[in-house]
Each structure stands twice: as C-alpha cells, then as structure tokens.
Amino acid sequence: MNANSWAQLGLYVVVLLALVKPLGAYMALAFSDQPNRLTKFGGGIERFVYRICGIHRDEEMGWQRYSLAMLVFNVVGLLAVYALQRTQQWLPLNPQHMPAVTPDSSFNTAISFATNTNWQGYGGESTLSYLTQMLGLGVQNFLSAATGIAVSIALVRGFTRHTAKTIGSFWVDMTRSTLYVLLPLSLGLALALVSQGVVQDFSPYKDVPLLQPTTITEAVKDAAGNAVKDAHGKEVTRQKTITTQSLPLGPAASQIAIKQLGTNGGGYFNANSAHPYENPTPFSNFLEMLAILLIPAALCYTFGRMVGDTRQGWTLLAAMLLILVPLMAACTLAEQAGNPNFTHLRIDQSASALQAGGNMEGKETRFGIVDSTMWATATTAASNGSVNAMHDSFTPLGGLIPMWLIQLGEVIFGGVGSGLYGMLAFAVVAVFIAGLMVGRTPEYLGKKIEAYEMKMASLVVLIPCALAVVGTAIAVMAPAGLAGMANPGAHGFSEVLYAFSSASNNNGSAFGGISANTSFYNSLLGICMFFARFPLAIGMLAIAGSLAAKKQVPESAGTLPTHTPLFVVLLATVVIVIGALTFLPALALGPIADSLSTVSSGH
C-alpha cells in the first residue's frame, strides 16, 4: 500500500470517528426515558404519530410482548411488500409497465427487505415499478433499520434497569428511531447525493443515441421466441447495430440515502453503487461509504452514554476497529498485488500515472482499487451489502476478506442496531470465558451473566453459522443449486458459500456469479434470511428481559474490567476464533483452494 492508499483509509477512519460522539450523544438523547430538549423539540410530531397510531407512550412492555410486537409488525410489512410486487402492474407510478414479479422472487425480496438483508435476486430497473421501489422497498429500508435500533436500545435498557419487568415500548422506540434518527439523516444525505448527480424523478426511462454505435451478434428467434436453427442444427445468428441506449431513471436518491444509513444495501439499480446514477463521483462514494458505518459506530457511543460509562462504548468500537482496519488494508494489498499469473506473462500490473495497477477486473475506474476494497470491507463489516465493485472478480484472497467479515456474524459494526446487539452477545460470551478462566461468576456492567443469558447468547452467535453452512451444503448437493453456479470448482463453491453467508447474516451483498433468481435459491435464501433475523432479535430481547429483572451487583476486586485494552483484545479474539473455527473448513474448500490453484497454475 502506498501513501495515497493509507491516506484514504486514514481519512475515512478519522472522519468516521469524529462523527461518533456527536451522533451517539444525539441518539442517547432521542432514546432517553427522561424528557429533554430533543424530545421537546420533536414532541409535537411524536405525539401526533402516537395519536393516529393509537400508541400509549407510557405503556411499557415486557420482553415477550416487545418481541411479539416486533415480529407481528415486521411480518405485516413483509406481506405488504409481497402484495405490492404481485400487483404492481395494476398500480400507479409504473411508467415502464413492469409486469408482476414472480411469486418466488416476491417472497425472497419481501423477506430480504423486512429483515434488513436486502439481498437482490432481481435487477431493480428491469423488474420493479417506482411505487414498489418507494412504498415497498424504501419504506422497509426505514422500518427494518428502525427495528434493529429499537431492539438494541431495549437491550441497553436491560443493562441499565434493575429489578424491572419491562424493557420499553417497541412502538415508541420505532417512532423515535425513524423520526429523530433515520429521517433527518436520510434527508440530508439524499440532498447531498442529488447535488452529486444521483437521479430523483418520476419520468419514464429515456432512450438516448449512443456516442459510438456498436454491433452485436444475436440469435434469430421465431414468433414463439425459440431459437431458429439451420439444416445442421446450428443456431442462426444475425448482426445487429445498436444506436440507442435506455437510461433508467426514478426516485433513486431518496432510497440510496436510507439504503446506506440503514445498512440496508439494496440497490435501486442492478449494478448497485457501481451505477453512475447511484454513486456518480468520488465524493458521493466517500459520503455513502461513511453512511454505511456511521450509525453502527455511533450506537456504540450511545450504548456507553446510556449505561453511564462511555468507556464501555469506546471499548466495543475499539474491538470493531481492531478487526476492520487490518482486514481493510489486507484486502487492498491483495487487490493491488494483482494476479500472479499475469506476472509470468510479463504483463505490467504496477500502479503508474497511466493505470491503476493491480487487479482492476470488476472495479469502476472512477473509484480504483482503494475505494473499491474499502467499500467491500465496510459493506460486509456492516450488514449493508451494497457494492461498488464486483466481489466475484476480486482475487481469491481479496474476496475471502469480505466473505469472512460477513461470517464473523455481522458484529464488526454490523447492521444498524443489530451490530450492537450482536457484539453485546459476543461480549457476554467473552466475560463468560474470562469468568471460567478465573473461576468467578461472570459479570457485565453490574449484571451477573448466568446460564440463561449464556444459552441465549450462544444461540444468537451460532444460529447464523448453522444456517450458512447447512444452506451451502444443501445447495452444493442439490441439482437445482448446482445449476445456478456459473463457475466450476473452488470458485463456484465460493459463490454459493458467499450467498448463504450473506443471507444467513443479513448482509445482502452478492459475490456474483450464481444465477440466484430461481425458485430454489429464492426460497432457500429467503428462509435463511428470516431465521437469521427474528429468532436472533428475540434471543437478545430475552437477554434484555432477564438482565432488567436482575439486581445491580456492586463492582468488586474480582470484577473483570470491561473498558480496558485487555478486554478489547479478548472480545476481538472471541469474535475471530468463533468465526475462524466455524468457517475455516468451508473457506479452505472455496477461496483458499482458489488462491492456491491460482498461484500453482502460474508456474
């Protein structure tokens, strides 16, 4: 990595860290139980929302009721998105006359957006009407992110309350997440993106003449759409000159802002953030990349503020950075090193004034290698899933890093809210392991960690791992799963492993290379996404309820300090060891074997 690469990485981390405290403190105010200047300022709108929705602000919930409200609310949203896709041909704001989406793709997309995964088996501009994009996916981008924040705040209350039966109100937390956090930030970012050239309109797609007409060879088809064959059984082809191009438009900026801030990641266009109308300039790229980690990072500070010790929040953030920054640098190094086979062919892969150097396959020349690898690692560390480069085209080791970041459980920043509660599950496991080492009952933030919390935390940590490996195993054994693979051998296995890791950790990014818009993949990935989201949230809410009911234990000489560098290393180690132990065999069959075969084939 040269000085320019380090400068870009450093600038990103510095700006991100500079925003953590102000935004984190702001969110702590938004979720405070006590009236404050923020809730007074927005109180009128908040009360109006409660009145029209029939919400009683002071009516708190136990963890069971909170969980049920969360589940029912999200399943209703899921059904609404399913219905919108199936009926979009009859609904307004469909200037391209998009037909109904197929049932299996509607199922997959509805679950995907309700679970904050935003895996996309379809191409947005060729499948969905403006109404479906806005009312279906755009709304779910807000609500799924707000759900994650609500669950994490309820968990924090579990730590702060003593001998309490309730952990807050799901409806109040949802309202405040949306009203005070997601809406204002999204509005500001959407306007900034429009200033950079991101489209935001309702006009039909525009056909424009190409600057340079291009000629293609296409198969001749009969009236029924079947390929015409000659007397020898060969397909008949003809030359066709393309002179125009259809430019897709639509209300993109408003959706892209929340897609990044809410760690949703579902692209308005099929090429996602590699599309010039989603991400036109290096500045829009920086803003969007910042938005990906902004709320998950700031929530760490919010957590510290709410538990009355900001050092606890900084500790979680430090553990996240301890894993992210080296992996970001390693991914950049792997891509800048390029393809070893090219060296033997005497192809110059070094960076110079005339070329980016390294492996530029699948990357935008507007962004180059560093912005592509930083995005790839940020989007997979967070459960965002948007891409500005094609991960399938990364070098095997460069592609391994985003995949492994997903497999670590989406706790290195993770999803909005879900990253914090996932990391707190690991913190519970870490203090338990530390307690075992010294033979004391583990404590975290003044609460004893007992068998029930450990059972729930273990489930939260292990469910996504199980879904990913079992799903991959089914797909590589089933003919329908194998039919979707575009590449044979280790690389094809990587494509399937990535898809199931992404769905089972609610990330949503695609490695690419597999044809996932089939009933097999749509159904199986949909099931993985659902179970990776709601049972985990319920497990964390159960921990919240259990902790809230406990008494505060005074700190003693035997209490493990959880705000020290030692705990940062312990926490990061637990995350890495669990991720490595679970996925190393699968990674050996995929990207590691792929890398070794690339190196050996070059000699």
Partner: peptide
Amino acid sequence: MDVVYLALIAALALATVGFLWLCERVADRK
C-alpha cells in the same frame, strides 16, 4: 404459487413464535 409462498411465510412466522415460546419456557424454569 402465491398460496405456497404465503403458507411458507406463515410457517416461518409460526416457527419464530414457537422459538419465542421456548425462550419464555426456559426463562420461567431458571
């Protein structure tokens, strides 16, 4: 096919409610 996928959504939701019930049972037992 709509019926199949709607039934699958219902089954997933019910399974999750079952998981919630199990978590509650374990909590009551401690």
